[in-house]
Each structure stands twice: as C-alpha cells, then as structure tokens.
Design a protein around this nucleic acid. Structure first.
Lengths: 351, 351
DNA sequence: GTGAAAGCGCTAACAT
DNA sequence: ATGTTAGCGCTTTCAC
C-alpha cells in the first residue's frame, strides 16, 4: 500500500469548506474567526480522516522547519547520551524536533555534519566542537545561522555557550585532595590542542596546586583520552614515572576507571594507597566496586539550557551565556568521610 | 542579522540562467542535458554564493522528507546509545536524516512520540516498542507508514523486525552455566508483560534447564528492571529466598552489576561463591572489577540493519526480517577458563 | 540544451 | 465568518 497523507484539501473537500477555513481551525491564532458550527464540522472531519498537518510544508511557508540540529561527537557515549537526552526533552517542550548530526570522533569532521544540518534547513544548531579552529561553524554563524556551543567554548566562535566551569571543577577536585592532606597529586587528562575543556581542567588543577604553594611537577601530568583504555595506560605510565604519588585527579570518569583498573592489577589499593577523583559523574561511577568521587556536571540540565538559549537566539536574536557550577560528589575513592556506595544506596532505596 | 538562505532562483539570477537549469546541474539525474559551459558557470555561481539545496522544499515536491524517525525509550542509556549510533551511521550512509522521537520509559507513551514523528513527515520509523499492544504503531502501519521493529518483536504488529535471538541468547548463557556444573541456577530478569524480550529470555533460561532435566524452581526466578538498582534489590530478595544458589543468569548487564554489588556487600564472592552471566554486553561490563561474562548483541550492527530494512520498506515496499545471533562473551564472572580483564586488555593493547 | 508553467501542502494578505 | 490569490523552494512535465 502506498503511503498517502491526508492533506488540508482532503479535509476541506470532505467538510465542504475551503482550505483556509480548515487551516484557521487548526491554527488557534484565529480565536473566533470561525463559526462554532463550521469549527465543529471541520474538527469532526479531521478526526475522521485522521489528518495530521504537514510540518514540512508549514515550515516551507514560514521559513522555519521547527527542527534543531545537534552536532555532537557521537551518541553512543554515557556523557553525550545524557546531554542529548536533555536536548531532546528541552526541544520537546518547545515543540521542536531534534535532528542528529553526529560525526565520529575524528577531529575536523565537523564540516560535513554541520553542512548537512544546514542543508536540512534546521532553525538552529547546538554544537559540541572538537576543533580548536571551528571554521565551518564560524562560517555558519557569519551567515546568520543561530548556533549555541555546548560544553566546549571556542574563543573565536561568536556564539553563546552553555557549559560547566571546567576550570573551577578541576580546581575543586584538586583542592579537595589538597585538603585531605595530599601533596603529590597527579593529573591524568586530555591536553590535545583540540580540546578546550581538557585544557581548562588542566589549568584548574595547576591553579589549585599553586594556590597551595605546591610546585607543578610535569612528570605528574599524563595525557590520556576520553576513554577507559587510555586511563589504564596513563596510570601505568604514571606509575613508571614516579611511585610516590598519593592522589590522582583524572579529568574524566572514563580515564579514572581505567586508572582504577590499572591500580587493581598493580596491587595498588584505592583509596588506601592512592586517592582518586574523576570528572563528569557518569552513570556507572556510583556503581564501581569503589564508588568514584568525582566532579559532576548537570548534563541533562545543560542540554535543556542549550535548547532554551537556541530558542532565544532564533526568536530574539540573542541569548546569554550560561555557566553552570560544577559539583563535587564525594564517594569512596578518596577514603575519609566519603559516603560508601552502600550508604548511598540505602538513601536511594529508603528515599 | 537575519538568516536568509540562498535559493535556486538566486543562483539562477546570478548565473543568468533559468531555475530549471540550475536544478538540472544539481541533480545528476540529467547527465548530459546541460552544456558544459553552462554547467561550469552554474557550479561556479553555486560555489560563490555558497548555495545549499533546501532539502525540505525538495521533499515537499517529492513527497519524501529523507528523514527517518527513531522511536526509542530514551537515549541516555548505554544500550540505546549504541543502537542509535548504528542507526545514525546507517542513515548517514543512505543520505537520510535521523529525527529523535524518544519518550520516557513510561509504558504507553508510544502514542505521542509516533504521532509527532508522523506529523513531521518522516519517510519511515524505527520502532522500539514498550507496549504489549502497540495500538498507535499498528494504526500507522495500517495507514501505510513504513515501520520496522528493533530489538523487540510484537506479535500483532505487521512490520519487519531486526533483533537478536533473545531466547537463544538466554539458552546459551544458561547452558554455559550448566556445563560449568551448576545446578542451582537463578534468573534475575524482566518479566513485565510489556516486555516481549524479557519474556523470551526467561523462556530461554527455562528451556535450557529443562533440556538438562532440571526442574524449574520458581523461587529462583526474581523480577527486576533494566537498571542497576533493581538488580541490587533482586539479588537481596533472591538471597533471602534461598542460600544455595551457585549461579545466576541476569537478563541484562545492568541487573547483573546491581547483583554484583549486592553480593559484594553481603560478602559473597564472584565468581568463587556465585557465578554470574549478564546479557547485552554493555560498555562498562568489561571494566568491572570482575569483568562480566555476558551475552552480546551486535547493537550498532542492528541499528544499521534496521536502517537498511527501513529503506527497503520505503523503496521496495517490503523488507525481510533480520535475526542476529547472540554471542557469549566469556570473561571472569564465572571463573574457570574465562579470560580476565587483564588478559583481555593485553590483547587489546598489543592487538 | 534550455526555459516556462504547474504544483507539492501550507499560510498570509487581501477580498467579500 | 469565509473564500481567493499568491507564493515559500523545489522538481517535473512539456515546449521550444
């Protein structure tokens, strides 16, 4: 069977009125411009024919598609999944559709994803950049396409952003370790030039150390990536470099878990031998054998905020930047007064 | 600045040709119907003006949107994330856009998500149902909207499906435990009537036991949900019921991890005291303290297959059902010859 | 080879 | 209160 949609004119014909009248009934923008009798007749016909307005056709006329595009690295990822969920919920609330424009983690693949979204006529784009120099995004902004940056901030991109204060989050994590008495604190992080947020977290780590009068030891800073494996390898590298480390701030929970495993294998006990703090508060972090102390980002809230900003940009032409406060979630991986998973679960179950 | 797209007629005017000619240049369907000179001139103009075709307008004319809708429960989930990634990649390869139609886990919320997608004029829908009686989906199929079911199979829904053989996967998991010598094998699973796949996994578990001449003990079957907490609670319940269990087949890795934690807290050691098998092979399962033996589904491949099926359905009017084979991934949670995480990682790193 | 005209489903502006 | 006309950006006849 061929799929033929019911259109306005079908309804009009069936109801014995003109197309415009039906349109008026549908669009409440005409409160009392249709007689009650006609309105009822039309509504009945719509119901009977199972009519659904064609959003695309409406969009063509209005110059809007009521679609927003999301340009993120990939969706199969705990972190982006939460962000995307927030975006979706926010969009649903604003009657906007969400169009995926993912590209694989390859740096520089922004181009095609963004152009693709533009070509589909999205009203605006939520952009998670992975390039230090986001050329295509800048071009689109220059062309006037509403775009908001999420999580990552690009200096040269003239678009509002929604993100968490990475510097402050890293500072908080490091300071927490310092206050616990640690002095040899290592950092496993992402420092590729392409990742603004990784650099900000590094800077926060360094600033905290300096604030406590501790000299920065480059040997304690190990590069990793946003995944488990790299955290594992980074931990091995770190241990190769120096054995006197008592604490680690990892700039993502992925890396932290990888490091945890490397410790386990090497017979290093967490938190007894080494204290560990992560970043992001990913869903599994609370369910590890040693629940992870970490810096949480309000991921879903950020997704929703990004939609609100984008709507502002589309409709008012401007939107403020939104900076969320990170929050230190203290669990067991630094020992001390941290809550254990067990007590947390009791809270959860009883609460 | 207002965002005004460059249109065909802009290009035509600039290039001094008609709109149709430009359209012909764009659509390679007219191989040699345009003189080389004109073609070059037009292409140059397109480049200069940075023209991008308006996919929506094209769709309006063609009666297609080149958009497919994805109706899944939620995106912020390791499982759905992978599926969605597969769908996205498959769609990108077929030049299709992916529109999100998520609804929260509430049963019966299918309705609005599906209608919303229909209203946006998607060419077809990939559907993960959560209702035993998917009324809206059935109505859409009856109306002729191409729809393929993913992961879950609804008996009364006349639409092709792409999924893994849940029964067989559960059978394999249980048989593995049986071959390891276990006889008191419990099952933590999802048996709500709304979840076809949970029931199939239960059936596979039961069939394996029966094949080995073991009577089914209802006390060993505990209901859970697709999350950690419920696995944790289910394990506690199970242990309350009987203490002689030597193995557990959990019908999702989420539940398995929850059970693992409950064991840890209760001082039960895995795999020494109890062997554990999960289902789904979620990303974190390999990174647990005791890496989880589990039944893997080819999630991304299934997403891609679903797109191919949907394209077939849209373009040919039919598509075959696709049933993937589950695969038992043996790690450490059942002891014995299972690979440890450590050896796995060596493979990974060296390979 | 190229262009003019019609129309996809809808809404806005202007009648009546 | 209802209808007529025009046009959103594009593709598809059908002429030239």
């Amino acid at each position: 069977m061929i799929y033929m949609r019911v259109t306005l004119s079908d309804v009009a014909r069936e109801a014995g009125v003109s197309i415009v009248t039906v349109s008026r009934v549908i669009n409440s923008s005409y409160p009392e411009k249709v007689s009650n009798e006609t309105r009822l007749k039309v509504l009945e016909t719509i119901e009977r024919l199972n009519y659904r307005p064609n959003v695309m056709a409406r969009g063509l006329q209005k110059g809007r598609t009521y679609l927003i595009g999301v340009a993120i690295v990939r969706v199969a990822d705990s972190f982006f999944g939460d962000i995307l969920q927030g975006i979706h919920d926010g969009a649903a609330a604003a009657d906007l559709g969400v169009l995926l424009g993912t590209r694989r983690l390859d740096i520089g693949k922004d181009e095609s994803a963004l152009r693709e979204l533009q070509s589909r006529g999205v009203d605006g784009i939520i952009y998670y950049g992975t390039t230090p120099n986001p050329k295509t995004a800048m071009k689109l902004v220059a062309e006037g396409l509403p775009l908001v940056q999420i999580c990552n901030l690009h200096d040269h991109l003239n678009a509002p952003y929604v993100m968490v204060d990475h510097f402050r989050g890293a500072y908080m994590a490091t300071e927490y370790l310092l206050q616990l008495g640690h002095r040899r604190i290592a950092h496993i992080g992402v420092h590729g030039g392409a990742d603004p947020q990784g650099l900000q977290r590094l800077a926060g780590y360094q600033a905290a150390l300096q604030a406590y009068g501790i000299e920065i030891d480059e040997r304690l800073i190990v590069a990793a990536d946003w995944n488990w494996e790299s955290g594992y390898l980074a931990m091995q590298e770190l241990y190769r470099r120096c054995k006197d480390v008592t604490a680690i701030f990892a700039s993502s929970d992925f890396a932290a878990v990888g490091a945890m495993r490397a410790c386990q294998v090497a017979g290093i006990e967490i938190p007894h031998d080494i204290a560990l703090v992560g970043f992001d508060d990913l869903p599994f972090s609370a369910w590890l054998d040693v629940p992870l102390t970490t810096v949480a980002q309000p991921k879903e809230a950020m997704g929703q905020a990004a939609v609100r900003s984008l709507v502002g940009l589309i409709e008012e032409g401007s939107a403020p930047n939104v900076m969320f406060e990170p929050q230190l979630v203290i669990r067991a991986s630094c020992g001390g007064n941290g809550k254990t998973r067990e007590s947390r679960l009791q809270d959860q179950v009883s609460g």
